[in-house]
Amino acid sequence: MKQGKQHTWQTAFMKSIPILCSYLFVGMAYGMTMENAGFHWYYSLLISITVYTGAFQFVLITLLSSGASILTIALTALLMNSRQSFYALTFLDEFKRMGKKKLYMIHTMTDETYAVNCSLDEKESDRHGVMFGVAILSKSYWVIAAVIGGMLGQLIPFDLTGIDFCMTALFVIIFVDQWEQASSHVLAIVGVITSVVCLLIVGAQYFLLPSLILASGILIIWNRRQEAA
């Protein structure tokens, strides 16, 4: 039992290393930006624990600094984070079977943890344990980095610009994996085309949601066609 637990945490840690690189760097950048905008580390701590979503937390700094209305803040949160509704679709059944941990798993679902969960082996002996471990570790990296960034951001001697690329690298690797396993490359190609089209039409800030809605529509039709064939 004890050894099993240790294996679970080891696996979770190994799987979370790309998230560690990304969250430490981006989280510290967040803490520093907050500090520069006049929000001390305890605000970074509070927001990172309760909201926990990378890109929107940065936008929230600007919104708070400019004294934006609560309605504006609510709408921005709605627009920027609605993509994460789609992530739940892949793990609906699995999270339901995780009992009390379900709510925590839902709360900690980010772009990055979704990607790592997708890359887990179906045959992994303690799959749910590893998912939970990745969730806890990832959130800790983010929260700790944000606080450190706020407290001693200016003291870091090296220039780490670019280290957050490790997350892009992980997305690329999972993409290659899925490409190799897939019997058809339609899924991946649909993703590339819809997102590029939406990026060109809607612009960089809000293209994620339209891309996902459009891609889901195409995939539903594609699934039906497959059945009919």
Binding site: L89, F171, I174, A188
Partner: peptide, 20 residues
């Protein structure tokens, strides 16, 4: 079924997001 086929598509979308 949508949930099963989404990961491949979402990875593609996220890569575009990272390089945009």
């Amino acid at each position: 079924k949508l949930g099963k086929v989404l990961p491949a598509t979402i990875m593609a979308v996220l890569i575009v997001y990272c390089v945009k």
